[in-house]
Each structure stands twice: as structure tokens, then as C-alpha cells.
Design a protein around this nucleic acid. Sequence first.
DNA 1: TCTCCTTGCTTCGACTTCGAAGCACTTCTG
DNA 2: CAGAAGTGCTTCGAAGTCGAAGCAAGGAGA
Lengths: 171, 171
Amino acid sequence: MHHPPESVDPVRLGAYFALIEVTSLLRHAIEQQLREAADLSFVQFQILARLDLHSPTGSHRMTDLADAIVHSRSGLTYQAGLLEKAGLVTRTPTPDDERGTTVTITDAGRALLAEIMPGHTEVVSRLLFEPLSHTDAETLAALLAPVRDHMRSTPPRSAAPRRRRGARPSR
Amino acid sequence: MHHPPESVDPVRLGAYFALIEVTSLLRHAIEQQLREAADLSFVQFQILARLDLHSPTGSHRMTDLADAIVHSRSGLTYQAGLLEKAGLVTRTPTPDDERGTTVTITDAGRALLAEIMPGHTEVVSRLLFEPLSHTDAETLAALLAPVRDHMRSTPPRSAAPRRRRGARPSR
DNA sequence: TCTCCTTGCTTCGACTTCGAAGCACTTCTG
DNA sequence: CAGAAGTGCTTCGAAGTCGAAGCAAGGAGA
């Protein structure tokens, strides 16, 4: 009999389905909470959180940010524009590269984030972690970390019309 | 440093971030693959897959389907319309409830799905499971299953039955 | 220096998404 | 058997999303 690739394995298939389902439900709940609490979308929240974490400057280049939150560049441009309009971030040309735009979180942005975080973590705790022990959480993190690294390091498989980062990272 | 509720726990926070990140990357890759292979969106794929799995009839009611794939009803209406136009599903009134619409996958739909699956599982295997042993996959599935059940059983927090002008559920 | 190619970001247009409102049918209640 | 309340789906309008194309700046090679 054929024994095609590993993926037909029902265990893996189940893990995959559960992963998608859990994350969909979680995102949905988070989105509602953010919307009620501060009228922010999940993408906007991710932008602010990423900037805030990336202290001390709280800045990022557009492309890096888009890559970090897994969002299209054009989509990020749009959202960054909204956040700027709301006074939560600023956009300034990058000093050493006149093409680049640096996004920086403002004090108002940090304040809003601080105000939101409790409710946010509450939702995540209640939905995601309630059925998991601390050890379970550790296990989950330990399982996902290598996957994340693997995905980040794996090239996009199909060379883009506009080539992505060259054959190798020369940085 | 304060030590507010449980959720600030860095381990859980890390697991949460990794979960979001991994799933975002995975969905992104899957979406590209589906687009190239059959010009289907992930939502459309989920619809077809869900219908196909739900044998033998391969049918579902709109609401159940929307709930299963975690998508808005209106969004499902839109996508089901596209799939119907493409001949991959049919929509018929539900026999015993004249309000309902039953969606059924067609032979063409099943054929397309069968054609796509190998490439799909290939992507999932390569991205998600390559860094995981079989045991890891089992562990992951075992961790996520209870979370999924918990999320599914937890009421949406504000379970308002379609409020109509401040009316209260008098039941 | 002058090209030519690459890269960073934005603009543009087409499509998708969602919630609210609306319509039609069902069920509950008296 | 009404009338009221509930449910299933679609329509509608506003907004967000993406990829492709466009613009401007950096960089390598002649």
C-alpha cells in the first residue's frame, strides 16, 4: 500500500486541525475584546505590542514590522497610517536610509497598550490557558518554538518575481 | 515589578506568541499554495474540506458550517455563493426547515479537493511537522484538544441573543 | 560618474470581511 | 389560532486586505 508522506498520519492531521481551530477561535475572541476595549483591530494591537516590546526606542522599520506580524506591506502602510492619525505612533524617515520609514510608538500608544493589556491577557488566560497546567504551557512553548524558527528560516519556496532576500543573508 | 494575574507568566506569554506566530506563518504559506494550485482561498478550502469530511451526504447547514470554520455568516454566504458559481457546491433549502439552506459538495468539489490535498499536506508537513517527531505531534494534539473543547463550550462572554431595543431575555 | 538593478514604502484597484439590518419562516404562549 | 419572540440566511455599506505597479533612494559595476 502506499504510505505517502508523513502528513496523512491521522495524529498529525488532528494536531493541524486543532491548531487552526484553536487559533481561529482565540483570534476571534481577542478581536472582540480589543474592539470593545479600545476599538483596535488585532493587527493594530500587534503593531503596538511589537513596538512596545522592542524597547528602548520603541521603533521599527516598516518592512521589519510587516514581517514580524506576518502582514502585507501595503496592509501595514494602511494600518500604520490609522495609528498615526490616532496619535499612537509616529512615522519618520529612517536616518541612514532615506527610503526607509521608521515607526515609533508614542507615549499615548504605550499608555493605551498598558490600559488594554489586562483585559487582553484575561481573555487569553481564560480561553487558552485555563485547561492547561503550567507544565502544559511549557511543553506547548517548547514544541512551537522550533516550529516557528523553522518556518522563519525556510525560504518561501517559490522565488518571487521580485526576488526576496538574495540567495543568502549577507548581513 | 508587579506580578499581576497569572497571564503575565512569561512562559504562557511565550506560548501564546508562538502560537499566533506559527499559525500566521502557516496560514500564509497555505494560502499561497492553495491560490497557486486551485485559486482557492483558505476559507473556501475549509468549506470544501469540512463538507467532504462530513460524509456521507457531504452536506451542512449554513450556520453550522460558519460555526465550524469560525467565519461570519455573511462571509460564508458570500463564499458559498462563489463556490456554487464555480460548481463546487450546491445550495438547496433544508427539507424540514424552510428557512435553512443546506450546502452540499458536488463531485467536482470532491474531485478538486482530492487533486489539491497532496500539495496541501505537503506544505503542512514541511512547515509544521518537519521539526516535530511523531511523539511531539501527539503531544501537541493532546494539548490542543482540551483547549479546543474548552473554547467551544465557553459561551462568548456576552451571550446576548440578538438584542432588540434593550429587550432582555425573559425566558 | 553614469547606468542598471535592487530595495523600501506607498498607491491603486479588486476583492473579501464583518456587523447591522432586513426578510421569511418557526416556535412559543396564551 | 393569533401575536410575539426567536432563528436562519441574505443584503448592504463600511472598512480592511492583498498583490501589482509605481516612485524614489541606495548600491554595484563599467
